[in-house]
């Protein structure tokens, strides 16, 4: 669904990523790890087309990203759910409105989808907080709301950037359980994290592939994890 072929990315003349090959196939589960500043977020941004590769090819749902205009990128993003560490909500909208935002901007905010929204809020345990504003939420609630927003369009791919960075262990496990559930529904999942305990916990539940960025290149992590 999303494929990076021999991709490099440079910023200001400095190479951040080199010769990256990555394929996010349906039902796949990848963890992306590496030290801070290694380029995990940059790689995710290349996947959801916020950045353009300086070399190589990025294909999203069979389309060459280099040939996509801004509307084409918007179409791709409707099929990709994003969970950021800082969540990136619109603080003047309620939790329910933020979660429903992808439906609103894509013109799919029909009344029958409201029931789906209620169900989704219940699934992430936020149905009682639907009218709260984002600044009123705890870190865990924010991450779960971000996950709900990421999946409301039933995307094929879910990309999460340090989704448990601000969470305690119990809440991290709860979020991981939600991601594993989504993966079992056939979604491709890519989680960038430096939380090795979370990765070990996930590997006990699902066949996850662990990738590591080292020296600007992507490697498959082995037993040294």
């Amino acid at each position: 669904m999303i494929e990076l072929r021999d991709v490099s990315y440079s910023y200001g003349g400095d190479a951040l990523l080199s010769d990256i090959d990555l394929a996010l196939a349906p039902g796949s589960f990848h963890f992306l790890t590496g030290p801070s500043g290694a380029g995990k977020t940059t790689l995710l941004k290349l996947c959801y087309l916020e950045l353009r590769a300086t070399r190589g090819e990025v294909h999203a749902f069979g389309r060459d990203a280099a040939a996509l205009g801004r509307d084409g990128v918007a179409q791709v993003r409707r099929r990709v759910g994003l969970v950021h560490q800082d969540c990136r909500f619109l603080d003047h909208l309620s939790v329910a409105e933020n979660v429903a935002l992808p439906l609103v901007v894509s013109g799919q905010d029909a009344p029958e989808r409201r029931a789906e929204l209620d169900e989704l809020l219940r699934w992430v345990g936020l149905h009682r907080r639907r009218d709260a504003l984002p600044p009123e939420l705890s870190g865990g609630e924010r991450q779960r709301a971000a996950l709900a927003r990421a999946v409301i369009m039933a995307p094929d791919v879910i990309l999460a950037d340090e989704p448990t960075g601000n969470l305690d262990w119990e809440m991290s496990l709860r979020l991981l359980t939600l991601l594993v559930e989504l993966n079992r529904m056939g979604k491709a999942i890519l989680v960038a994290t430096h939380d090795l305990n979370l990765i070990r916990q996930a590997k006990a539940q699902v066949a996850a592939r662990v990738l590591r960025i080292r020296d600007r290149q992507l490697q498959v992590a082995g037993a040294d994890l």
């Binding site: 959801y48 916020e50 801004r70 509307d71 918007a74 179409q75 993003r77 409707r78 994003l82 990136r88 909500f89 619109l90 935002l101 992808p102 901007v105 894509s106 927003r149 369009m153």
Partner: peptide, 16 residues
Amino acid sequence: AQVIGVLRLVGARDVY
């Protein structure tokens, strides 16, 4: 700008 960034991330087109 931040609002626009969020809207872009959730798939909003420029026209919207």
